[in-house]
Every structure is written in C-alpha cells, then in structure tokens.
C-alpha cells in the first residue's frame, strides 16, 4: 500500500472566503468560493494561479489565521478529525503544536531573540526536548547555509534571504504531519533553493502532507506531486 492510498490529512470541503470591508462602506470582496481539495500523506500539492487568486488565503485558512466564510477545513489529528472552520481558538492552538506547521513568506522577528533560539523554541513547542531542539536547530541552520556567526544574533538585521532561512528552519524543525509553505524560496539563491527542495523531499518521504505556494518554476517542478489551479475556486462570481 502506498502512502498516497491512505486517508487525506487535510481536506478543503467547499470552502469560501470573502472579506467584508467595513471601512469601505461594507463592500464585500469575494476571494475564494467552492474550494475543494485534499492533501494526502507524502503529497506536495502546489497552489497555482495568478497573484490575487487567493492562494495565500487558502494557506492562512488552513493554519487558522483567516476564518472561513463557508465550508469546512478538516484536519486529521492522529485518530480524530477537527474542522478548522468551527474549531475553538484553543483547539487551533493545539493543532499548531501537534499537527500544523506553517512557513510564512516573512519572518516575524522578535526583538533580542537569537536566530538559533527562534528555531529551538519552535522545536520545543513541537514537542522536542531541549537538547534535541538545540541539535536539530544547528543542523538545519547549517544545512540552510546560514553562517554560524549569525546564529547567536537576533535576525532583525539579517538580509531577506537570511531571515527566510531562519523561518524555514523554524517551520521544519518539528515533525508535524501537515506542512503549509507560502513562497518559502522567494528570496533565496539557487544553492539554497536546492536545499529547500531536498528538505521538502525528505518531509514527503517521511509522510508529511505539504500544501504550498512556489512561484519559482524550477522549484515548483521539483517539489510538486500535483498542481491545483486556484482560479477554479472562484465559484459563480469568477472574474
């Protein structure tokens, strides 16, 4: 039996998202309608479509950052299924510790916290012991070619690419079954893009279900097991 034959870890079921802009006279901005999509263990589903099509919105809904206007987002958490659209805040926080990992486009830096500590803390939140978190944080930062002299410094002064590598290490350090990635390679050079491609392949081999946005065509070709065009998720209001 292949991993792909097992049950999906993440399912979007007729999901809709719109924004009501109260400061613009209450106008409603539809973003997504009728989004249906499943991600299985070992899959890397890449979201395609033009900028503004709602790719990032889908990822943010899957992490609980955005609310759903309609539909369900079902996450398999060990032996139970949780619907993110209706889950209480504490349930979503619990899923983030055990099940959902998210590599955002930009690192939200915390004053005074070193790069290594940022990554370690994510590992401990994901259930690693202090020593394991320390070792794995170092391994990941080294693999991502972040010069060791930077590890003890807060990333606030790092370049965009250096910050992004810290962000990737932070998102990958813990073993979580679902990995969401929003343009993780956008500010990386070719060498580091290749490292990220390898890391994603390793996660897939370990059975992680990955949903991501990758604008860089080479990276997309290298990591995607399937590409889903988000333009199909515009419902009846499609532009």
């Amino acid at each position: 039996m292949t991993l792909h034959a097992t049950m999906p870890l993440l399912v979007f079921d007729n999901v809709a998202k719109s924004f009501t802009l109260h400061l613009r006279g209450g106008s409603v901005l539809p973003v997504i309608a009728d989004a249906t999509l499943a991600v299985h263990p070992g899959e890397c589903v890449v979201l395609g479509g033009a900028s503004g099509a709602g790719k990032s919105s889908l990822l943010k809904m899957a992490y609980g950052n955005y609310r759903c206007a309609a539909g369900a987002i079902r996450v398999r958490d060990r032996d139970r299924i949780v619907d993110l659209a209706t889950a209480a805040p504490r349930e979503i926080l619990g899923l983030r510790r055990t099940t959902l990992s998210y590599v955002s486009q930009f690192l939200r830096v915390i004053p005074r916290v070193s790069a290594r500590a940022v990554v370690e803390a994510a590992g401990r939140e994901g259930g690693l012991g202090p020593e394991a978190a320390r070792i794995r944080a170092g391994d990941l930062l080294a693999r991502l070619n972040l010069p060791e002299r930077l590890w003890a410094l807060p990333p606030a002064t790092f370049s965009g690419g250096e910050q992004q590598r810290v962000n990737i290490a932070r998102g990958l350090i813990a073993e979580r079954p679902i990995l969401l990635m929003d343009e993780p390679t956008a500010s990386l050079d070719a060498q580091n893009r290749a490292v990220v491609v390898d890391l994603i392949a390793e996660k897939r081999a370990a059975g992680t279900a990955i949903l991501g946005i990758f604008h860089d065509a080479d990276v997309r070709e290298a990591v995607a097991t399937r590409i889903v065009d988000v333009a199909a998720f515009r419902g009846a209001t499609a532009a």
Partner: peptide, 21 residues
C-alpha cells in the same frame, strides 16, 4: 474575540478593522 492572529489578520467587526488598519 478569538485567536490573536485571526482577530488581527482577519478582523470581522468594523471597529476591529479600524483598530488594525
């Protein structure tokens, strides 16, 4: 009320949208 990043990233109430913006 809600999860912090949800309220700040996707505020629903008019007043919260004003605060965030």
């Amino acid at each position: 009320t809600g999860l912090t990043d949800q309220v700040l990233d996707d505020p629903q109430a008019a007043y919260t949208q004003l605060l965030v913006s």
